[in-house]
């Protein structure tokens, strides 16, 4: 096989697309301080996937993605509603909502979909090694279905971030001012999380929901340690995520382990390096300052 359906090309490109789109949306989530929402969303979409299958009989495609995106938004809505009652903190609300939706999804699959290509293990971990087997023909070119879905989601995600960059940024930094200026931070938040849900669904065939969370959180957290501008943080996060895919693929090949798992794990060394660099810089600055300042000014 040649071109996009070549196994290596398909696996690498799909992994990179997952990483780039997840870290693009994840940057704003990490800065808002609610990375765990990615966890909640990516588990809750199983409920939407199961429900969309029961209603339409489809296991992939736009209907699936929309249905799952809606259940991700439902999870966020339930979490926000529970938090607003002020009887629960938001972390407790997250812990209540997503296991409930995830187990509802598992039960639906177990009761109604035993024979269908939908199982919890694949949903959790995915199987990026097989993405090249399931292809569609687009304008005469054979394209893996998962890669196509990821490419479409990346275009949508990038269009959203570029078009609403100011509103997203202000809604993340200072939601009160965003609302006072009429920039509808609540609406922006829900569109952002709907896209994150949709991206998670498109990604689950390839890397599964648990590994998806890694790409949402780790590359942005790494970039955050290395840059001082939002725009460069986002770009750097996407580059790091893209670099993790070939690195993880090489490791998986070498050690003969899960490719998706290795790709997610490959984001880790970057984070450790970035953290080490920050500590080293802080130590250097403290040493330089210690030489110049009197002890009383060291605060």
């Amino acid at each position: 096989m040649t071109g996009l359906a070549d196994p290596t090309v398909a696996i690498l490109l799909t992994g990179m697309l997952v990483g780039v789109s997840a870290s693009l949306l994840g940057s704003f989530l990490v800065l808002r301080g609610n990375s765990m929402l990615a966890d909640a969303i990516s588990h809750s979409i199983l409920f939407g996937i199961a429900l969309a299958w029961l209603l339409t009989g489809q296991t992939s495609g736009p209907v699936q993605i929309a249905g799952a995106a809606l259940s991700g938004v439902l999870a966020v809505y339930l979490i926000e509603t529970l938090t607003r009652t002020r009887r629960l903190r938001d972390d407790a609300a997250i812990g209540l909502v997503f296991p409930a939706l995830f187990s509802a999804g598992v039960i639906l699959i177990n009761v109604f979909a035993r024979d269908v290509h939908l199982d919890e293990h694949t949903v959790l971990l995915g199987e990026i090694g097989f993405v090249w087997l399931d292809t569609v023909t687009l304008g005469g070119i054979e394209v893996p279905r998962a890669m196509l879905a990821m490419a479409v989601m990346l275009v949508l995600d990038a269009a959203f971030v570029l078009a609403f960059y100011k509103a997203l940024k202000l809604a993340t930094f200072d939601p009160d001012l965003a609302r006072a200026l009429g920039l509808a931070p609540g609406l922006i938040f829900y569109v952002h999380l709907s896209l994150l849900s949709g991206t998670a669904v498109a990604a689950f065939d390839a890397v599964g929901v648990v590994l998806f969370i890694t790409f949402v959180v780790v590359p942005p957290a790494t970039a955050y340690l290395l840059t001082r501008r939002l725009s460069s943080m986002i770009v750097l996060a996407m580059i790091l995520a893209a670099a993790s895919a070939p690195l993880g693929y090489a490791v998986a090949f070498w050690l003969d382990v899960s490719i998706g798992g290795a790709m997610a794990l490959a984001t880790g060394p970057f984070l450790l390096l970035a953290y080490g660099w920050r500590r080293w810089r802080a130590w250097q600055q403290a040493r330089a300052a210690g030489g110049l300042q009197s002890p009383s000014a060291s605060a």
Partner: peptide, 10 residues
């Protein structure tokens, strides 16, 4: 950021 409101959405 104080000007974001009057700059319009895009």
């Amino acid at each position: 950021m104080g000007l974001y409101g009057r700059m319009g959405w895009f």
